[in-house]
Design a protein around this nucleic acid. Sequence first.
DNA 1: CACGGCGCCTGAAACATTTCAAACACTCGA
DNA 2: TCGAGTGTTTGAAATGTTTCAGGCGCCGTG
Lengths: 339, 339
Amino acid sequence: MAIGRSPSVKDVAAAAGVSLGTVSNVMNRPEVVSPATRDRVERAMAELGFVRNESARQLRAGTSRTLAYVMLDGSNPFFHDVAQGIELAAEDADLALFICNSNARADREALHLDRLMQQRVQGVLITPVDPESAHLADVARRGIPIVLVDRVAPGEFCSVAVDDVLGGRIAVEHLVEQGHERVAVIGGPESLGQMRERLEGARQFWAEQGLPPEDLTFMPTAAMTVAEGRSAGERLAGIPARRRPTAAFCANDLLALGLLQQAIGAGLRIPDDLAIVGFDDIEFAAAAAVPLTSVRQPRQELGKAAAQLVLEEAAAATHRHRQLTFTPELVARASTRSH
Amino acid sequence: MAIGRSPSVKDVAAAAGVSLGTVSNVMNRPEVVSPATRDRVERAMAELGFVRNESARQLRAGTSRTLAYVMLDGSNPFFHDVAQGIELAAEDADLALFICNSNARADREALHLDRLMQQRVQGVLITPVDPESAHLADVARRGIPIVLVDRVAPGEFCSVAVDDVLGGRIAVEHLVEQGHERVAVIGGPESLGQMRERLEGARQFWAEQGLPPEDLTFMPTAAMTVAEGRSAGERLAGIPARRRPTAAFCANDLLALGLLQQAIGAGLRIPDDLAIVGFDDIEFAAAAAVPLTSVRQPRQELGKAAAQLVLEEAAAATHRHRQLTFTPELVARASTRSH
DNA sequence: CACGGCGCCTGAAACATTTCAAACACTCGA
DNA sequence: TCGAGTGTTTGAAATGTTTCAGGCGCCGTG
């Protein structure tokens, strides 16, 4: 019971009266060691409180048994649901999962990536600040498989995302079905490929219906946060009633929640005065005072698929990057449905 | 540029025409190597794209440069804010942070702890499923510093938490100040020490004011989730109006959000028909349709302090467990304040 | 009895890094 | 000219694990 340092295989071997190799075999290929010996070794391990040293194991193996996920924004539950999916897949593959959070800052992202390379992780799942960053390409060049989550970069990387054009389309389609003729699309910044596609989907449908383009207003925001949603609400309120949109499609749920809060505070009735559609369908969307209609992303599946993709890339000798696209789905709730 | 395996110090040494030791010195004690040599080595490293192998480093050092946080419930933003605080502290100490999620399941928690021991992490921050679990004590016995977050176990572990009795007290104090004479306390399960203390604080204040005990109703829930909040709202609605509480103190914000949603859906005006106080003050509390009054925990500070505590324990040869207690603070918003 | 085969176990090498005593090359002062 | 001191570099050892070629003893068969 004297604990100077934690016991090693050597100590176990000595205690059990066998060689190092045998102890290792007990752990890794129990079938090749005789039951009697195995028993003796296992008893010794228990007695000494032996715990494998993962560093040594990794050193020998050359690669760690670890996956990493670099989250873009820890305060958005969407990414946690994705993380959950990744974790499930990692567990299936008996891998540990390292979760980092770049908080949308490129320097922190770079720091994390550096560390992950030093750890020799098996693969990196990431929603990057900028999919075209040199640092990211650097990591890939060193042979570490990378999969983009909720972002795409055809040719460069594997990725997992939903069809954002379709997402934008079904959101606006739903609003038009409910009889709305003036709709605002809220989100940004426009540099986000995702944002551009959702907007494009909305415009496509609008055009196909032969509706006047000026009745689909794009209201850009600086970020996709609750606060920006509120301020978009204020801008919306400033529009003269005759021309004001009767419905808003927000590019994520945080925006939608902010907008909802501002609108209710201003005395608007939802959905009668203003209908709202969000995007992502995070849990808090359903939990809002007026439950939020939202374009659902299969969040867990996204994570799972990403993990599988990265493992595939890690295993395959030769590999072609693949872009996996999931189909979003509209979940209608009270924020667009007048009973 | 031929990459079979990633280059090691040996390769760098060869390329720079120096010995292994010198390369190591360049990285770890640059002041002892001559500028000319240092330059040559650094150039070689850049050229080869050398990346330190953290496993080997750890193996030699005997301990990793990693902290771990085992979250209780990934779907509760409270824990992410704590994680954020931990991450900041870890970064200051130049440590990596391993984030795991037990999802309130003891088996997953045990799995994570096992893995963390194998990784030889420097310390573990955890909100355990059960603070008295044998597994936890096991880890501690192996000399890995453990700090409980948002839980306490005097004598056994270091911990960081808020004064829950006080928290319960100020919540109810606020409601009484607003003129409420019948109050419900909602939360559970009662096996949670935290819950018992918040309830006790509420009762203490109530008694001190000489208010009739039967007017402070405890409504137990099976968990602290949005869904449970909704169902508590239904139970509340079932009470005859004459005896029904005019205010509710929920033991966390998720419950409060659920209750708020149910109440609004049932046509109640908040706070006139029902005032609501939550606990934690997560961001979504302020973002609710009716912004939620809440007992604020200093979430980030909690995390930071926990990280510092674990580092302290890791550094000190001799150590006495400490219980850090923070002071909660009431943040009044529209859910209790009739303008 | 000899020999091949089998089951079980051993010993040594290898992984990439850090550390540390010792060596080396210089310079300066006596 | 020798010795001490200084600044720089080296070489070897050590960390804990896995792997793998080989060894030992035993059984059954020829």
